[in-house]
Design a protein around this nucleic acid. Structure first.
Lengths: 139, 139
DNA sequence: TCCAAAAAGTTGTATTTACAACTTTTTGGA
DNA sequence: TCCAAAAAGTTGTAAATACAACTTTTTGGA
């Protein structure tokens, strides 16, 4: 018997917790497929952004990903250390040949991760993710 | 111009990235309200679980939250260090009086965070989160 | 051309997260 | 009752994340 004074308190309504749990489960699926390449899904996301959009300054990558600049900087530095991207053309960040090669090699496994996630979530779950993504683009 | 060999490659389909972005935006809303109490939303979730269900062994908390046992252990140890929970009754973890007091004090701010999140997501977004949560309960 | 302010990028610090490997506790069959 | 195996809990390690505070670069007005 607890001593909570708030009669209508219902922690199962906690949206943050629900989203964190969903995030953990999906992150674990992706990790399974990506870890043999010693790359994380956050790092891969950044590689995808640079592959698709060419060279970008860090602030533009942050904005696109809703990522705090210090977090991005840390991620980028690990990718630079791996030789997958280059910051030499300051302020632009761009893919290296090794980075492009890694992206080409990893896409089949990434697609498997996507497929397994789609099977877990089903069509309505995938649409739910899309809806949520649209909601946060407005913030 | 990129050198991607996979013709139909579309990284904007990456569910993991979308979920991570949604998670960051919502986590940032909660942090805004909770940080004055020097508590994080992960820690608060654990306090809520223990408040609602009384004393539990760590494995049951892990299962309920889809949280890896080492992550839980770390979170718990920070709460023990704050005097908010106790592990003395091994293997059970339970709230302390200070913990119950903190939960009572924080609920109004937590409800504000929930409200702001509901306003961002709207009814259909909140239902989308619920749907996703149901999907992962089956995994 | 100069320079203060703003913006962008970097670093210190702390928390969260998970895998791997370890230690401790529990379980259940002999 | 004993003990091997399983389960639960702990610790080392590394990556992600964000706030705060710092340094470097850019901007635009004087």
């Amino acid at each position: 018997m607890n001593s909570i004074e708030h009669k209508h308190f219902n922690p199962s309504l906690c949206i943050s917790n629900k989203v964190r749990q969903v995030n953990r489960v999906i992150a674990n699926i992706y990790r399974k497929y990506l870890s043999p390449f010693q790359i994380t899904d956050s790092q891969l996301t950044i590689l995808f952004v640079l592959t698709k959009k060419g060279k970008l300054p860090q602030k533009d990558i942050c904005r696109g990903l809703h990522l705090e600049k210090s977090s991005l900087n840390r991620n980028l530095n690990r990718l630079v250390a791996r030789g997958l991207i280059s910051k030499v053309d300051f302020p632009f960040v761009q893919m290296t040949d090794a980075g492009i090669e890694l992206v080409n090699a990893i896409i089949p496994e990434w697609e498997k991760a996507l497929k397994e996630t789609e099977e877990l979530l089903n069509q309505d779950g995938v649409l739910a993710v899309d809806l949520l993504t649209q909601k946060i683009q407005r913030s």
